[in-house]
Computed example of a mutant assay.
Amino acid sequence: MDRPSPPASLLELSDLSGFGIRLTPAPEVWEWLQAEILVDTGSIHNEDHAHLKLQSHDVEEFVGVVRRYGASPDVQALVDAANNPAEVGKLNISRACGTCLLKSA
């Protein structure tokens, strides 16, 4: 007796397979996503989720989380480091790199 299996269309790779998504959403989902979330006038549009600005998506999401929940001690250390002047000047960056030091030896 053969075991039941899903339709072949569900097993085929889609355009989203590169993102680890094996299933293809219903055709109406993309249209709904555009109309309700991505456009400025959408009913559930959130400016925090707007992409392709000067900040990358990861930085944008990180900043949003820190705004909502505050900075952990590790995040505060990152903030402190960013607020201080660089420890190695741009002209001396080759001194901080082992490969550069080997090349100059």
Rank of each mutant, 00 (worst) to 15 (best):
G20N: 08
V66Y: 01
S104W: 08
G18M: 02
H51Y: 11
C97W: 05
R3F: 14
S56D: 15
S104V: 10
V88I: 01
A96P: 00
A71Q: 02
E31V: 00
A81T: 02
L16P: 05
A77V: 00
V88C: 01
A71P: 02
L38F: 15
H49R: 09
Q34P: 00
V66R: 01
L38N: 13
A105W: 07
S94N: 09
L54E: 14
K53T: 15
L33Y: 06
E28V: 01
D15R: 13
A105D: 05
D58F: 05
S94H: 14
L54R: 10
V66D: 00
T41I: 05
P27S: 05
H57K: 12
M1K: 12
R22H: 07
R67M: 07
L11A: 15
R22P: 01
S43L: 14
T24D: 06
D48I: 03
N46E: 09
H45G: 01
L16V: 09
L102S: 13
L101A: 09
I44F: 07
D74H: 08
K103W: 06
T24W: 00
E36R: 07
S56E: 13
G89C: 02
L11R: 12
D74W: 03
L33E: 03
D2N: 11
I37A: 15
C97D: 13
S17Y: 13
L13S: 15
A96E: 00
K90N: 05
F19R: 11
F19V: 06
T99C: 07
G42C: 05
S56C: 13
A105M: 13
A8P: 05
E36D: 12
Q55D: 15
A86D: 06
W32C: 06
I93P: 00
I21Q: 11
P27M: 02
D74L: 11
S43D: 13
L78Q: 04
P7I: 01
E60C: 13
W30Y: 11
G42I: 00
E31S: 04
Q76V: 09
G18L: 01
T99I: 12
A82V: 04
S104F: 11
G64L: 04
D2H: 10
L102H: 13
K90F: 03
A50R: 08
A81V: 02
V79I: 14
V59K: 12
I44M: 10
H51Q: 09
L78D: 03
F19A: 15
R22I: 00
A50F: 05
P4R: 04
S104D: 12
R68N: 10
A105E: 06
S56L: 09
P73S: 10
K90A: 05
G64N: 10
K90C: 04
V59L: 15
